[in-house]
Design a protein around this nucleic acid. Sequence first.
DNA 1: TATAAATGTAAACAATTGGTTACTTGATTT
DNA 2: AAATCAAGTAACCAATTGTTTACATTTATA
Lengths: 206, 206
Amino acid sequence: MSRTRDPESTKRNILAAAKMEFATKGLSGARVDDIANVAKVNKRMIYHYFESKENLFKLVIEKAYLDIREAELKLNLEHLDAKSALETLVRFTWKYYLDNPEFIRLVNSENLHHARHLKTSKEVVQANRNYVGLVQSILDRGVREGEFRDQIDPVNLNITIAAIGYYYLNNRFTGSIIFEQDLMDSEALDKRLEFNIETILKLVSR
Amino acid sequence: MSRTRDPESTKRNILAAAKMEFATKGLSGARVDDIANVAKVNKRMIYHYFESKENLFKLVIEKAYLDIREAELKLNLEHLDAKSALETLVRFTWKYYLDNPEFIRLVNSENLHHARHLKTSKEVVQANRNYVGLVQSILDRGVREGEFRDQIDPVNLNITIAAIGYYYLNNRFTGSIIFEQDLMDSEALDKRLEFNIETILKLVSR
DNA sequence: TATAAATGTAAACAATTGGTTACTTGATTT
DNA sequence: AAATCAAGTAACCAATTGTTTACATTTATA
């Protein structure tokens, strides 16, 4: 049966279109008209369901964070030895950024705006708390197994794992110009991933 | 003598105001009127000297790159042993990002726009070529001194040195929320710098 | 089945935007 | 000192923007 009305699908379409629009053009550059056109809904519906452009952005960035944290939990890193778990996490983080370039763009936008949309989001804070705990448990296990150094700060390790992927991909356009090579060709990408794994493993090894 | 007209100072004021405006609000979010007000010049002067908002942005981002590359050259890393040279470079990069947060924001904006303003800038490419050469020479020296591993890719090393500082500072707002600590308090900043030096030195060591 | 609530459309609005026009004032040159 | 050009001002414009108003239609419910 073909329903002529479908509020859930309308909301989903708006959110998906908004995510791409905000990621491509930033918060200021994004156009509500364009979001409506891509989502194939009347512009009025955006205000009906999401109140304002600003609030729509808030929901988009919140969902983006919850999505990546959820994907990380699915890795089931508890079942691996510490070294494999850490390598898996580095690989995952890289691949996630590579497959979801919108995530990086959205995080940049949110930081340009001093994270004002995320400030009130308890859910995102909790999801991240679990994530830091996960990395801490890998570190503990690595120490017990005699593989990792003691006293490594899990937050700084987390940040570095993200950083070495994020920066490369975020700055792929300026990078490809100033380094005079295509940073996005598959050979360069593979090489970078291996480089990153090496960086992290050397950092934690005894 | 007080000159009522001073084109050089007018241009300088416009460029300085534009740099801050673009860094704070991005290319789309920046307002030509605001740049004119901050620079204390008539809006007409911006178009007189810089043609368009877009072209003004181009000059701002070009100058930003030339400035950092120039500052790096002043470090005179050739006179240091390889390990000290590399540590100095990591410290410098961190401090430069810390003291010039506009640089990070501008690079983000340029990447959001697929680096279209930098594409035609021969000068920036040349400046960066010198920079990669500098890092390569440090690596060579380190190998000769028996301190560094062989075959380290200078471009990926460069990218990683930048990444570990850039990401932390770029995402300081979202980071302070999701990690539930002020990433910008001086203790956290010192700790991060030491962490980064350790990361790079462990990466290159034999 | 009548009715109210939810879902949707079209058009318009007030404010803002990058950019321009028409004009004035100061400095330099011959 | 006249003339010419560069530097500067104020007001305005057409286009675009996020948001709203007024209205129509579908769906669920009493």
